[in-house]
Design a protein around this nucleic acid. Structure first.
Lengths: 251, 251
DNA sequence: GCAATTCGTTGATCCAGATCAAGATTGCCT
DNA sequence: AGGCAATCTTGATCTGGATCAACGAATTGC
């Protein structure tokens, strides 16, 4: 497992982890470690798989004919994603946009509470969280201008990832321009222009690649009809997943 | 409850129904009967509500500033929809596009199996079904042309509602032009043109308002990269909800 | 049966964002 | 440090679908 520059699509460092066996999701759970740009082809995954993001950030996407790509989910730490919640036959994939650790388990028919360590996770609530963001995505790409969509997703990220600073938030932008564009159903050029515009208006700044500061949150929120909905997204405070005594979780 | 022409937004003929009490969803379940165009404001509904569509067809939609409307879900008979799966603060609503009966219950924390009569319902599977369609919607409105989107949604409806006929399917089109346009993120005029084009090419016919025949399913499927995914949607064979002996379900 | 309203169609014109085409930065590797 | 590949930016031009406008057809209410 020391591939070169071109990151392969691979099952990653998957291995069963006995220390996690205790509850539905953990029974036969597998910890998968992914480097940035590493990809899981969802069609290759075991039927009924459920993925829980321990750390990092991933996208769930689909490639259509003509190199049209659409990201349908951004998965943040704490998110739970079921394989059967994705269309069949489109060759969908899950790609790490940052180094990530995910736990793969199986849904136990009907049981919708799982636990990681001593922390229980309400799978129904997790599904609802994803669903809310899906609806927001449909609203963005369906009925918003590019500018509105961008403002919305920046608010979403600020809420889910950001640290407050005077006037706004700062966070590590998990998606590159291409990915962000493919999430918002824009193209890269247009997205870049929109970001430049926000910078010119001094609403955001990007001190270095992959890092964003919202300098004027109110102005940003005023730009989109979805501000309130985005602001109301619930961040997930994942319990610091400390390795068990035997250290078996640590990748 | 005999409103006039302007169909009101109202809680509908809601009343608790003791005969349904038996399982999580049914505890305190309420049967709601809606006429076409009748609307439930989701914000008015009790926290934690779960809706199960017994019959008919509904849309879940959101109205943005500037009379931009986006339908984020079409709910068919058998679908289950959780209130907390929808963004907060956008004044979202659920509208019957056909006369409908829905059962409103509450999710029992963590319990994800419910039953109607003697039939059990896997709420996780129901959530997954909606999620699949949401992803498909994002793909349609994000990365498909109007023509591709329309073909996709017609296949979806054929699969979920249609009766086979030589060469294709026939079904009652549940959505009017406006609604279909608001689902596909097109506008009504454009949608009408697209339908006309399909008719001109003899791929579909519309013998009367609200009724559609797919005369050449293969041609339709060839028009969209999402054909296979749409064709793979799982129709829900809802058990004929026979009224219990005391007739209390019947509206 | 008639009027009002909703629903659907089609033509003419316009624009947000796509596409094409160069470059400029940034960060990584040796 | 220098080279290379990935990433990002910006300008010029094009186009699918929106918008505006007008009208015809089907329902609904009375």
């Amino acid at each position: 497992m020391t591939p070169g520059k071109k990151v392969p699509r691979s099952p990653g460092g998957a291995r069963p982890d006995a220390a996690l066996v205790s509850h539905p999701l953990q029974a036969h759970a597998t910890l998968i470690t992914l480097r940035r740009k590493q990809r899981l082809v969802l069609g290759d995954q075991p039927q009924g798989s459920i993925f829980m993001v321990q750390s990092g950030c991933l996208t769930v996407h689909c490639m259509l004919a003509g190199s049209r790509r659409q990201i349908v989910h951004i998965l943040y730490a704490g998110d739970v994603f079921a394989l059967d919640a994705v269309p069949y036959g489109l060759g969908m994939g899950m790609t790490a946009v940052a180094p990530s650790r995910i736990l793969r388990g199986r849904g136990a028919g009907g049981a919708m509470v799982a636990s990681i360590g001593e922390q229980t996770v309400d799978l129904a609530a997790a599904a609802a969280r994803l669903s809310v963001r899906s609806s927001l995505l449909a609203l963005m790409i369906g009925r918003c201008t590019g500018e509105e969509s961008l403002a919305t997703v920046l608010i979403e990220m600020a809420v889910l990832l950001g640290r407050p600073v005077p006037g706004g938030y700062t966070f590590e932008l998990p998606l590159r321009r291409d990915d962000l564009a493919d999430y918002l159903a824009l193209n890269r050029d247009t997205l870049s222009r929109l970001l430049s515009r926000l910078r010119a208006r001094d609403i955001i700044s990007m001190p270095k690649r992959g890092w964003l500061i919202i300098k004027n949150f109110d102005a940003l929120a005023a730009m989109t009809p979805l501000a309130e909905a985005a602001r109301s997204l619930t961040p997930i405070t994942l319990p610091a997943v400390h390795a068990p005594a035997d250290g078996s979780i640590v990748s």
